[in-house]
């Protein structure tokens, strides 16, 4: 008896669960995850596409199934660069893209360089490791509130340092209004997120076998040369993902500007998510908002797919299909 159940179980394991009663097991296991993903992601996404084709507004929101079908009118209103809504959308898209490029470049660079500098043992390293984790652990709203205090014009720490301490600026600048607001959001974001790049790069660098560095040191490679020619290319697979994830975070940034400035941030700090939020819950032009969403989602999808294609190109040998990601590089690669 015991013997028979043993063989039965073994056969499950090796052929997958094909035998009668066990066929449903994997579906039962993924069932809860599937249901909640459907309710919160798939259904709303499909509804969003439907809404973008209807004239959904404040009068029809109560019974949205009865909203009139308007075809591509919303899309035209939302995209027309000559119209007020379209012009605002394109300007916001450009601003968000610039924001994302700046903050991702800066935080990624800091993260990778710090990971490289922290790779070897020195005095104070373990304390710094804890310190560098903290900004990432601090909730985004706390970071925004703390910086908001620091950036206040008369009694903030930033102006104290720049104007009274260093004398770099003679006039106390207003940071939280006008064009400066963009840089405030950027600073908060970078401070909050760069440790993510550091943590991921650090983990990836510690996986590089030390004999790679030893061999290059014997060949007389300088430190910075090792960084450019060994560490950076070897951790590229991890960094490709890190850059993608951080770019998505930056492009969809909402919280920092919302906490700092409320539902209506200054124009320079209004990013796509803030605009969509504004159109959805203050202007109540839901159909237009949904059409904007669709456009942004499409652009984002194109961006991600292009990035994934480009990032596949190896940072070490510049080949599109290489096997450099194996832990030890083979001979004959460009150094």
């Amino acid at each position: 008896m015991a013997d028979r159940s043993f063989t039965a179980r073994r056969s499950h394991r090796f052929t997958g669960v094909r035998g009668g009663a066990r066929r449903w097991l994997p579906y039962a296991l993924i069932g809860p995850a599937l249901v909640v993903e459907l309710v919160v992601h798939v259904v709303p996404m499909a509804l969003g596409i439907w809404f973008s084709l209807t004239g959904l507004d404040r009068s029809t929101i109560g019974d949205w199934t009865g909203a009139p079908f308007v075809g591509l009118r919303n899309l035209r209103t939302g995209l027309d660069p000559a119209g007020p809504i379209g012009a605002e959308l394109w300007a916001t898209l450009a601003r968000t893209a610039i924001f994302a490029i700046i903050v991702v470049t800066v935080s990624w660079s800091i993260g990778v360089v710090v990971a490289w500098l922290m790779a070897s043992e020195f005095r104070g390293r373990s304390a710094l490791r804890v310190l560098f984790l903290v900004p990432f652990a601090v909730p985004g709203f706390v970071a925004a509130i703390g910086w908001s205090f620091m950036f206040s014009r008369d009694y903030g720490a930033v102006n104290q340092l720049l104007v009274d301490g260093l004398g770099a600026v003679s006039d106390r600048p207003f940071w939280l209004i006008g064009d400066n607001a963009f840089w405030v959001v950027a600073v908060v974001w970078i401070w909050n997120v760069w440790p993510f790049a550091y943590l991921m790069s650090s983990a990836a660098m510690s996986a590089i076998p030390s004999d790679v560095h030893d061999a290059s040191a014997l060949d007389g490679a300088a430190r910075w040369r090792q960084f450019w020619s060994i560490s950076l290319p070897l951790i590229w697979p991890v960094n490709a993902v890190v850059i993608l994830v951080m770019s998505l975070w930056a492009f969809n940034e909402f919280g920092v500007a919302y906490v700092l400035f409320g539902p209506r941030p200054p124009e320079s700090a209004t990013f796509v998510a803030n605009l969509v939020h504004g159109h959805s819950f203050t202007d109540a032009a839901f159909g237009v908002g949904a059409a904007m969403n669709l456009l942004v989602a499409g652009l984002l999808l194109i961006g991600v797919l292009t990035y994934v294609r480009i990032a596949r190109r190896c940072g070490w040998c510049s080949s599109w299909r290489c096997r450099c990601w194996a832990p030890v590089p083979r001979e004959g690669r460009r150094a």
């Binding site: 994997p26 296991l29 599937l34 709303p44 509804l47 796509v272 998510a273 959805s280 839901f286």
Partner: peptide, 28 residues
């Protein structure tokens, strides 16, 4: 477990991860 639809489920999970909150929150 190797089951029919495993890849599709994996794809769904991955795309849900990439999908930003702002696209779903009004319909949601």
């Amino acid at each position: 477990i190797d089951f029919v639809g495993r890849r599709a489920f994996g794809l769904l999970v991955l795309s849900a991860q990439v999908l930003p909150a702002m696209f779903v929150f009004l319909p949601l």
